[in-house]
Design a protein around this nucleic acid. Structure first.
Length: 494
RNA sequence: GAGGCGCUAGCUCAGUCGGUAGAGCAACUGCCUUUUAAGCAGUGGGUCCGGGGUUCGAUCCCCCGGCGCCUCACCA
């Protein structure tokens, strides 16, 4: 017996060579899988053995000389197999013994129940379908308790495929994300909404307050921005006569990364003609409670050690009232920015006059008030200054028909009655533009074509945006947005 | 961007008051035909994140850098 190289990967490459030399293809092109493992389990009858053909990854191996147990796992589930020399022949069995954890195999055999009562497949034929050269982290489990969980956060994100192979919970969480996304589509389509796709590359940064990623188109020699929001395009579609539209896709914001922010994130934006922000509140409630009932069979869901009750109707509290309740400060009575600075300072928040009254109020809200909203809370009736795309109240031009939804202290949705007066919108854009000139690089640019669109007439419209990653955070009970994004942005490895 | 914490075998982690390291699982060899965190016996495996400094000697102490996590700031 020659010296075996120490490195596991080297060892396996060595095995590959030997296999090839003896005429075994470690990467065959095709295997006729006939049964999904979950189906085999569901149809299992200890008294009626059936022949099955399954395929999957070897997840465990317990060799006892001339016989062996192991588990194969496919996407649907996992099942034990029993491989014995007497049943497979000496050659087949010896070859099987060289297979490693992580190898993809095809298995044909008969179902049976072991003495300990475990559903199993008695292997007649076992073929290697794809060799696993990399050593897999070995995660074991007993009675629901997980041992040596693959838990290195960095590796989990960088090699998500490994995380998905070995960690059941990761797999479950992303499966749930897919289902939630699918449920949202179904919910909206059932309600008559049409899914559309609008540009990801914009020449004007607008529709939200955020710094963009900048890119360049060569042939047009054009500076372009990855979209920060699809908002203005979707409203153009309402102008065009699509009365109910939504887009569920990525936005890009060139800002910090933390447990709640990833530079690319998924939003669903929903626009409905002849609706207003109150209709959007109803829609939001219906959507969230529907999801909770579908996936938790309850409107109460556990989150980070507490219970969040999604049963509607949710609390609605006015922007200024919310601040007053928590801090005692009444910004509706404040007349100047310097007064506002003093007020903010009285609750320990440093601001400066150039921000204006309402940005200062928003600071106070963000610092002191938002985290008190654990159960779903609609924060309604925002000041106009903070909402350049929302429509003012007919009887109170200083406030707009808008809400933000907070759950678990975190903003999760934003909606308003859309501003459809082209003259008012133009003024607001110009205000934004001035702030931009003063150095606010998150202020919106003027979108002249959008103004033109409004001049053709945008019907009264309600619009709503929901952060999908954050919604999923709630449902998979995680504190980090990275656990809801398959490949979150990380610095490249060196 | 600032502060704190972390980085040791493929994975999960110990450890060295400064004398170049250990466990469990995985791997390799042998035994084992109903096991299931299989078992028993044996073996191999490490630029202790990188670079510099202090020191007779650094994985450990100091400095610089990298990556990650947490908190804060900005933002959804």
């Amino acid at each position: 017996m020659s010296e075996k190289p120490a490195d596991i990967r080297e060892q396996r490459i060595e095995k590959l060579k030997k296999m090839r030399e003896s005429g075994v293809n470690p990467y065959p092109n095709r295997f006729e899988r006939k049964d999904k493992i979950a189906d085999v389990r569901a149809a299992f009858d200890a008294d009626k053995p059936v022949n099955v053909v399954v395929a999957g990854r070897i997840k465990s191996k317990r060799v006892m000389g001339k016989a062996s147990f192991g588990n194969v796992e496919d996407f649907s589930g996992s099942i034990q197999f029993y491989a014995a020399r007497d049943l497979m022949g000496e050659e087949g069995y010896n070859l099987y013994k060289t297979h490693d954890l992580g190898d993809h195999v095809g298995i044909e055999g008969e179902t049976f129940l072991t003495q300990k009562g475990e559903m199993s497949i008695k292997v007649k034929r076992l073929v290697l379908l794809s060799k696993c050269i990399q050593p897999l982290p070995v995660v074991k489990e007993k009675d629901g308790q997980v041992f040596d969980e693959f838990s290195d956060t960095e590796l989990k994100y960088r090699r998500r495929y490994v995380d998905l192979i070995v960690n059941q919970k990761t797999r479950r969480d992303f499966l749930l994300r897919s289902r939630i996304v699918s449920s949202i589509r179904r919910f909206l389509e059932t309600d008559g909404f049409l899914e559309v796709e609008t540009p990801m590359m914009h020449s004007v940064v607008s529709g939200a307050a955020a710094k963009p990623f900048i890119t360049h188109h060569n042939t047009l020699d054009l500076e372009l921005y990855l979209r920060i929001a699809p908002e203005l395009y979707l409203k153009r579609l309402i102008v065009g006569g699509f009365e109910r539209v939504f887009e569920m896709n990525r936005n890009f914001r060139n800002e910090g990364i933390d447990t709640r922010h990833n530079p690319e994130f998924t939003m669903v934006e929903i626009y409905q003609a002849y609706a207003d922000y109150k209709d959007m509140m109803d829609l939001t409630e219906r959507l969230f409670t529907g999801l909770a009932e579908e996936y938790f069979e309850s409107t109460e869901i556990p989150y980070q050690g507490q219970t969040i009750n999604l049963r509607g109707p949710w609390r609605r509290v006015r922007f200024v009232d919310a601040i007053k309740e928590v801090t005692g400060l009444d910004f509706s009575l404040i007349k100047t920015a310097s007064e506002a600075v003093v007020a903010a300072k009285s609750v320990g928040i440093e601001t400066d006059e150039s921000m204006g009254i309402w940005k200062i109020a928003d600071e106070v809200l963000g610092e002191r008030v938002e985290k008190t909203f654990q159960n779903p809370t609609f924060l309604i009736d925002y000041p106009k200054e903070l909402s350049p795309l929302s429509k003012s109240f007919e009887d109170n031009p200083d406030y707009v028909e808008r809400f933000e939804l907070f759950i678990a202290g975190r903003e999760i949705a934003n909606a308003f009655t859309e501003l459809n007066d082209p003259f008012d919108q133009k003024e607001r854009f110009e205000g934004q533009s001035q702030m931009r000139d003063k150095g606010d690089d998150e202020a919106m640019m003027v979108d002249d074509d959008y103004i033109t669109a409004l001049e053709y007439g945008l019907p009264p419209t309600g619009g709503l945006g929901i952060g999908i990653d954050r919604l999923v955070m709630l449902f998979v009970d995680t504190a980090s947005i990275k656990d809801t994004i398959l490949f979150p942005l990380l610095r490249p490895e060196v």
